[in-house]
C-alpha cells in the first residue's frame, strides 16, 4: 500500500485538508474524504461528465484528476454553486424548465453549464450542445436542458446589464 499524502486545497472557497492515496482520484477525495457527494461517478473514464468540477478555472472530470494533483488548487463543485440558500440562475432555470428527471447527471450538467456561461455569456444553441456533449443525460433527450441553459444565459445577461 502506498503511503497516503497530505493535501491542502481550496474547495468552494474554503480551505480543506485531507489525506489521500496517491492513486485516488479527486472525485474519490471529494466524495469519500470531504463528504461532497454531489459530484457523481457514472463511468470513471471521463465519458459521462457526472463528476464535472471546475479546477483552477477549468472544467474537468474529477474522475480524471488525481486527488494529489489538487495540492494548492481551487476546486468548485455543485455544492458551491448556490449562494447560500439562493439558487444560481442555472439551478433555478433547470427547475422551471423541468430539465431534470432522475437528477443524477444534473450536478455535472450544472457545473459544466456554469463553466460555459462564465466564458460565453451568449452561446448559440449549437455552442451549448457541443459544450455539453461530455455530459450524458439518458432521461431528458437534452431538449429541456438546453432550453434551461439558454434561458439562464439570457437572464444572466439581463443581470449584467
Amino acid at each position: 500500500m502506498s503511503k497516503r499524502q497530505h493535501i491542502s486545497a481550496v474547495v468552494n472557497g474554503d480551505p480543506v485538508d485531507f489525506l489521500t492515496d496517491p492513486g485516488a482520484t479527486l472525485l474519490d477525495a471529494l466524495r469519500d474524504d470531504l463528504g461532497l457527494t454531489g459530484s457523481k461517478e457514472g463511468c470513471g473514464s471521463g465519458d459521462c461528465g457526472a463528476c464535472s468540477v471546475i479546477l483552477d478555472g477549468r472544467l474537468v472530470c474529477s474522475c480524471l484528476v488525481l486527488a494529489v494533483e489538487a495540492e494548492g488548487r481551487r476546486v468548485e463543485t455543485i455544492e458551491g454553486m448556490a449562494d447560500g440558500s439562493k439558487l444560481h440562475p442555472l439551478q433555478q432555470k433547470f427547475l422551471e424548465h423541468a430539465a431534470l428527471q432522475c437528477g443524477f447527471c444534473t450536478p455535472g450538467l450544472l457545473v459544466a453549464a456554469k463553466a460555459l456561461l462564465d466564458v460565453n455569456p451568449d452561446p448559440t444553441e449549437s455552442e451549448a450542445r457541443y459544450w455539453l456533449a461530455g455530459n450524458l443525460c439518458r432521461c431528458t433527450g437534452y431538449d429541456k436542458v438546453i432550453r434551461a441553459v439558454m434561458d439562464a444565459a439570457a437572464e444572466l445577461r439581463q443581470v449584467r446589464v
Binding site: 466524495r31 461532497l36 457527494t37 454531489g38 459530484s39 457523481k40 461517478e41 463543485t77 455543485i78 455544492e79 454553486m81 448556490a82 439558487l87 439551478q91 433547470f94 427547475l95 422551471e96 423541468a98 431534470l100 437528477g103 443524477f104 444534473t106 450536478p107 450544472l110
Partner: peptide
C-alpha cells in the same frame, strides 16, 4: 399546470442521496 417539482432543489444542489452516496 407546471409547478417546480418538490424534490427539485435537492437535486440541483447535489444534496439528493443516490445509491452510492
Amino acid at each position: 399546470t407546471r409547478p417546480v417539482r418538490p424534490d427539485g432543489a435537492e437535486k440541483v444542489t447535489g444534496k439528493a442521496m443516490y445509491g452510492a452516496d
